[in-house]
Design a binder for these strands. Structure first.
Lengths: 211, 211
DNA sequence: AAATTCAGCGAACGGCTGTTTACTGAATGA
DNA sequence: TCATTCAGTAAACAGCCGTTCGCTGAATTT
């Protein structure tokens, strides 16, 4: 077996990261299915053939990017679910966390939004699978707080999917708000809308047993 | 001015439609930003240069497709908003209408889902503008049914955006369900989830004044 | 009947694409 | 110290790309 460190491996991983970073940068104004292999290697400053030392093709690189981008989101979700506050405090914390995440990793969110329904099947599937896992986590975190007699597992799952979808929606809304113009006015409007929508869902959840 | 009919104009529009249809077909497994001009003309059986008689470039064709695809959705929304039934009947009618629309025009829905956050700015903007108009319509239709003292215009707008976003989400979920396998099992599951989510929103709306 | 318009054609252009090949030379291991 | 491994190289490959050009011939207008 090979060592996990060493000058050799380190340099290889460095180039690999450079390829992924360059790709993520180039994907800010095009889709993965139109990204060129040469375009990526050129941006890194490396020969086209070097690409194949790291990835089979561009959709392989895309799948790697999915793990990276949704990995960072995963940490954020974990932090939110760990908080044990009340409804309104949790909403506030969630929206703030999403806003900051988008500010910090805009390229990650753009990539996910763009490729979630994009033209490269393996990437689409990787994103769908990861978002499914997110919904699982949210469902597990919510279950103990919901009375079991009015909340069968399928309804809990439905609720969890709604939260995950809403989170992705909100993140892309923040992204577009900061893309239109870097002022903070639009961003506050998006945050206000997101908070109200989450409040509406909370109200619906509280009265779910009526149905 | 030129006549609206005539053999000349008719043939031109026929070719134009053929280009748009071919593009929509080719876009089922790639994004607009990777679609080639020659690819489209080849599919139609026409010389590459002929393309320029109808569109400035591919993003121009994309904008034309947005109008077509969201135009068909527009009719569907109008029909739903015209119905004057109660909450649960409206939910049922909405989900059924979306399901049938996706069954009838899958390529339209795929195009909108894929290019809503895709790599071609003019197309993104056209879709965003049209969905905004949808939200306006929904807001106008809902306003008379909501007590004005607990529903300021911005909250009505928030609710309308939520319904529009949920409709798009549901449509793409139907699309993926029928793409995975043409059986009806997944489709029913998507419909059940969508109905429950709409019911949850309805419950939240009914108790909005509590907040 | 003659003049005009104009959708579509075919050819050519420079430039870019993904992939393969044999290679080099530094890090690694015996 | 010497042999091996292997990330990255340079060059060549056939093939596709968007765009421009002058031209044709049928529909239209005068």
């Amino acid at each position: 077996m090979s060592h996990t460190s060493g000058v050799r491996q380190a340099q290889k991983e460095k180039t690999r990261r450079a390829l992924m970073d360059a790709a993520l940068g180039l994907l800010e104004d095009q889709s993965l299915s139109s990204l060129g292999l040469r375009e990526v290697t050129r941006a890194v400053g490396v020969a086209p053939a070097a690409f194949y030392r790291h990835f089979r093709d561009l959709s392989d690189l895309g799948v790697a990017l999915v793990e990276e981008c949704l990995g960072s989101l995963h940490h954020m979700i974990g932090a939110i679910l760990a908080g044990q506050e009340g409804d309104e405090e949790r909403i506030e914390a969630t929206v703030d966390a999403v806003a900051e995440h988008v500010r910090r990793y805009p390229a990650h969110i753009r990539f996910i939004a763009r490729e979630r329904h994009g033209g490269v099947r393996p990437v689409r599937q990787a994103i769908a699978a990861e978002l499914d896992r997110f919904a699982d986590e949210v469902a597990i975190a919510f279950r103990p707080q919901l009375p079991a007699e009015s909340w069968p597992p399928e309804d809990v799952r439905m609720l969890a999917e709604m939260y995950v979808d809403h989170m992705v929606m909100t993140a892309t809304a923040f992204l577009e708000a900061q893309a239109d113009h870097p002022e903070a006015a639009d961003e506050r409007r998006v945050a206000a809308t997101a908070r109200k929508q989450l409040l509406l869902i909370s109200l619906g959840r509280r009265h779910w047993h009526d149905a």
